[in-house]
C-alpha cells in the first residue's frame, strides 16, 4: 500500500503494508539508517525520532498513524537545540559503540526543548527509556547540562 510521509522536510511515497512500524519504513524503505533497531518493543529508545517535534519510539508508531505529521530523524534534525546537543556530545566524547546514541540525542533534544534547564532528576526521568549497554549515562547527563548551558549563553 502506498503512503505519503513527510520525512526530514520532504514528502516521500513509500509502499509498505498497514501496521508497518515507522522504524522499518525509515530504515528499509527510506534508507535512513541513523535510526536504530534495538528491541522492537519501545523498551530501549534506540529508534527514537521526532513526530511533530515530539520524541517517539518509531518501533511502536505505525505508518498509518503518522499521517501528515512531520517526521524528523537524526539525519534531518537541526536548529539551535539540536546543534548544541550534538556539539556537547562531541565535546565530551559521549559515544562508545554509538548504536544507541541517535536515539539518546533525539530524546535529549526533546528534553531541552521542553525543559531548558533540567536538573539531574529531570534528566534521569526523561532519559530513562533510552538504554545504553555501554553505560555512557554519566556523560549523557553531563552533555545535556553542557548543551543547556551553551543554549543559555
Amino acid at each position: 500500500m502506498n503512503y505519503k510521509i513527510n520525512i526530514n522536510g520532504t514528502t516521500k511515497e513509500v509502499d509498505v503494508e498497514p501496521g508497518t512500524p515507522l522504524l522499518w519504513v525509515i530504515r528499509d524503505a527510506l534508507d535512513l539508517t541513523g535510526t536504530k533497531f534495538g528491541c522492537g518493543v519501545a523498551s530501549c529508545g534506540a529508534c527514537t525520532v521526532h513526530v511533530d517535534g515530539n520524541p517517539v519510539r518509531s518501533c511502536q508508531t505505525f505508518i498509518e498513524d503518522v499521517g501528515d505529521q512531520d517526521v524528523i530523524t537524526i539525519e534531518g534534525v537541526n536548529g539551535k537545540v539540536a546543534n548544541e546537543v550534538q556539539k556537547a556530545w562531541q565535546q565530551l566524547d559521549v559515544v562508545q559503540c554509538g548504536y544507541c546514541q541517535s536515539g539518546q540525542i533525539m530524546s535529549a533534544i526533546g528534553l531541552l526543548s521542553e525543559t531548558p534547564n533540567p536538573t539531574d532528576q529531570d534528566i534521569d526521568d526523561y532519559m530513562s527509556g533510552n538504554a545504553c549497554r555501554c553505560a555512557t549515562y554519566q556523560r549523557i547527563r553531563a552533555a545535556i547540562h553542557l548543551a543547556s548551558k551553551n543554549l543559555e549563553g
Partner: peptide
Amino acid sequence: IHRKDHISKTNGTAIFALDVK
C-alpha cells in the same frame, strides 16, 4: 584528543552492519 568516531556516531552517519544495504 577526541575519539575518532565522536562525530559520525552523533549524526547518524556511522555505519553498522544493520545499515548495509
